[in-house]
Design a protein around this nucleic acid. Structure first.
Lengths: 69, 69
DNA sequence: CTCTGATGTAAGCTATACTTGACATTGTGT
DNA sequence: ACACAATGTCAAGTATAGCTTACATCAGAG
C-alpha cells in the first residue's frame, strides 16, 4: 500500500496565512473538507488535489506526497 | 468543476505494449479498474494515480491532466 | 467581559472508486 | 477448427470522499 501526506497547512501559512475558509472557497470545497485533509483524516480526490494545488500555484506533487511502504 | 483526463493507454503501448493485466498487477488494482480508467468511466483515487505513474516511472501529471471549465 | 473570527468535533447522508466473479468478443498461433 | 491471450461488458457489494448541519473551543479586539 502507501500513504498520502500533504502540506496544506504549511502552504496556507506560507501564503499570507490564508484561512481554511478562504482555501475551501477557492478550491471549491467545504471548510470541513480542508480540516479533514489537514488532519489526514482522509485523502482527497484527484480533482480536489489539483484544485488545491492550483490555489497555491504549485504542482500537485508539491502539495501531496505518496510514500511507499 | 473540471475534467480529469489520462494517458494510460498510450503509456501502456509506449512501454513495450504492457497489458492491462500487467499494469493492474503492478499498480495494485484490478484489470477492471484499468479498463474503466482508460475508458474515462471514472477518475482514480490519488493513491492509485500515484501508483500508476510509478509503474511508468513518470510524474502523476504526465499521466493525469486536469482541465478547467 | 463580550463579540467575532478561526479552528475543531461529530453524526448522518450521498456519490463513486474499486472490488469480485462471470461471461462475451476478437485476433493470433498451431 | 481449436486454443489461448487480450480486451470488453455487466451486476452486485464494500469502502470512503465529500457534503450538510450543528455545536464547541479559543484567541484577539472593542
Amino acid at each position: 500500500m502507501g500513504r498520502i501526506e500533504n502540506r496544506i497547512r504549511r502552504l496556507r501559512f506560507d501564503n499570507n496565512e490564508m484561512t481554511q475558509e478562504e482555501l475551501a472557497q477557492r478550491a471549491g470545497c467545504t471548510r470541513q473538507t480542508i480540516i479533514a485533509l489537514e488532519q489526514g483524516k482522509y485523502v482527497p480526490s484527484i480533482e480536489l488535489a489539483f484544485r488545491v494545488a492550483g490555489v497555491f500555484g504549485v504542482s500537485l506533487e508539491e502539495v501531496f506526497q505518496y510514500e511507499d511502504s
